[in-house]
Write a protein that binds this DNA or RNA. Sequence first.
DNA 1: TTGTCTGTGAACTAAATACTAAACGTCTCA
DNA 2: TGAGACGTTTAGTATTTAGTTCACAGACAA
Lengths: 125, 125
Amino acid sequence: MTGNKTFGQRIRDLREERKAKDPAFSLRRFAEAVDLSPTFVSKMETGEFDPPAPEKIKKMAELLNVDADELLALAGRVDPKLNEIIKKQPKAIADFLRTAQGLSAKRIQELTEQLKDESRKGGKR
Amino acid sequence: MTGNKTFGQRIRDLREERKAKDPAFSLRRFAEAVDLSPTFVSKMETGEFDPPAPEKIKKMAELLNVDADELLALAGRVDPKLNEIIKKQPKAIADFLRTAQGLSAKRIQELTEQLKDESRKGGKR
DNA sequence: TTGTCTGTGAACTAAATACTAAACGTCTCA
DNA sequence: TGAGACGTTTAGTATTTAGTTCACAGACAA
C-alpha cells in the first residue's frame, strides 16, 4: 500500500518535509494559508480533531503538492464534485460502481483510457 | 425525462397511489413504518422540510417499491455505499468519473455490461 | 356527539460539524 | 534579556442537520 497513515499524520509528514526547505510551511503559516486557525491544524495533525471541510483539504493538497483525492480518501471523504457527477446519471453510475467494486486500480485505469481514446476518435459517443 | 418532480412531490404521488389500494399508506402509518414523525413526512412531502437521511430514503424506496437511487438522486444525495466503494480506489475511480462525466446513461450501461461479461468469463480480471 | 382517523402548523431541540480565541511554555538569535 | 516565532492546551461557539412534540381543524362512522 501507498501508506497507511492517518490523515493528520500524513499532513504533518508532508508539511514538515516542506518546512525543512521553506519556513512558509510552519504550522502557523500553513494554517493561515489554508485559512484555518493554528489550533485547528495542530489538533488535526495529531488526530485530536477530525479533518476539516473538503475545500480546506483540497487547498492543503494544492499547497503540499499532492493529489487531492488521496488526502480526501485519507480523511474518509469523497470530493463533493464526484457526487455531482453521479447525480447526473444516478442509476447508471450507481450500477456501474457496484459492478466495478473490487476491481483493481489498474483495470479501472484501463477503462478510463478506453473512454479517453473513444472521445479522441469519435467525438462524444 | 423520467419525471421532473421534486423529492417530496414524488413521495406523495407514490404514497397516495398505494394508499388508494392500501390504507397502510396513510401519511401517519407510512411515517411510522419509516420511523419518522407524521409532521416530518407532511412537511417533507410538501417541500417545506428537506429530505431525511439516506437510510430513511432507502426505507421509503423499499416500501414504495421504487429504485432507491432514483429517490436518493431526487433528494440530491448519493448512496453512502457508493462513497465507500470510491474510497477503496479513490484516485482511479475519481479519474474515471471525471472522464465519464457527461456520458450518456446508455454508454455507462454498456461499460457495466462489459465488466459483467468479463467477470462471467475470466473470473476477477 | 363522541371517538377516531386524516393531514398540518408552530415552536422547539439534540447531536454533530467545523471550527475559534486566548493564553502558555519553549526556543532562538540579536 | 527581551522580542518574536514555534507548536500546544483549555475552553469554548456558531451553524447545520435531522429531526421532535403538541395541539389543531376537518372528515367519517357508530
